[in-house]
Amino acid sequence: MKQLKNNILLSCLCLLAFQCSKKVSNQAPTAVSLIYPTENLLCIDNNITFNWTTAIDPENDEVEYNIIIAKDRALTNIIENRTISNTQVSINLEQETAYYWKVDALDVNNNQGTASETYAFLTQGNIIENYVPFTAALLTPENNSQINSGTVNLTWDAADANFEDTLTYEVYFGEEDSTTLQDDNVATKSYSVSVESGKTYSWRVDVKDQNGAKSIGHVWTFSVN
Score class of each variant (00 low, 15 high):
Leu10Pro: 00
Asn26Lys: 05
Thr166Glu: 10
Tyr36Ile: 13
Pro133Gly: 01
Phe173Asn: 02
Ile67Ala: 06
Glu176Leu: 06
Ser90Arg: 11
Ser90Leu: 02
Asn126Phe: 15
Asp209Gly: 07
Gly174Thr: 02
Val205Arg: 00
Leu10Trp: 08
Ser85Pro: 00
Ser194Arg: 06
Asn51Ile: 04
Gly217Cys: 06
Val152Met: 07
Thr221His: 13
Ser145Ile: 04
Ile78Ala: 10
Arg204Leu: 14
Phe222Leu: 10
Leu93Phe: 06
Lys208Ala: 07
Ala159Phe: 05
Ile35Lys: 10
Asp184Asn: 15
Ser11Met: 11
Thr83Phe: 00
Gln95Pro: 03
Asp107Glu: 07
Val219Ile: 13
Val63Pro: 00
Ser149Ile: 05
Thr155Asp: 04
Ile79Asp: 06
Glu59Met: 12
Ile35Ala: 05
Cys20Lys: 02
Asn225Pro: 05
Leu16Met: 15
Leu34Ala: 08
Lys22Pro: 00
Asn153Lys: 11
Asp107Phe: 09
Glu196Ala: 15
Asn185Ser: 08
Val195Trp: 01
Trp203Ala: 02
Ser202Ala: 14
Lys5Asn: 12
Pro133Trp: 10
Asn185Tyr: 02
Leu75Thr: 09
His218Glu: 11
Tyr36Ala: 15
Trp101Met: 06
Asp184Thr: 00
Thr76Phe: 07
Ile68Val: 11
Ser215Cys: 01
Asn111Ala: 03
Asn47Met: 08
Tyr172Gly: 02
Ile67Asp: 08
Ser85Cys: 02
Ile216Pro: 06
Tyr131Asn: 12
Cys20Ile: 06
Ser21Asp: 13
Glu94Trp: 05
Leu93Gly: 12
Ala161Gln: 02
Lys189Tyr: 06
Ala70Met: 03
Leu9Val: 12
Phe18Cys: 12
Asp57Gln: 01
Gln210Leu: 13
Thr168Arg: 14
Thr221Asn: 13
Thr166Trp: 08
Asn77Trp: 09
Gln124Glu: 11
Gly198Asn: 07
Cys43Lys: 10
Glu80Ala: 13
Lys22Cys: 11
Gly212Thr: 04
Asn51Met: 08
Ser202Phe: 00
Asn66His: 05
Glu196Leu: 11
Glu64Ala: 14
Gly217Leu: 10
Ser223His: 04
Asp45Phe: 03
Trp52Pro: 09
Lys2Trp: 02
Leu93Gln: 05
Gly198Cys: 01
Ala28Trp: 05
Asn92Thr: 14
Val108Arg: 09
Cys20Ser: 15
Glu80Tyr: 15
Lys71Met: 15
Val108Thr: 12
Ala55Phe: 08
Glu62Gly: 12
Ala136Gln: 11
Ala98Gly: 12
Glu129Arg: 13
Ile84Thr: 14
Leu42Pro: 03
Ser202Gln: 08
Thr83Arg: 13
Asp209Pro: 00
Leu4Thr: 04
Leu4Tyr: 09
Leu138Asp: 03
Pro37Met: 10
Asp104Phe: 04
Leu16Tyr: 04
Phe222Ser: 03
Thr83Glu: 05
Ser194His: 06
Ala137Phe: 04
Asn77Gly: 05
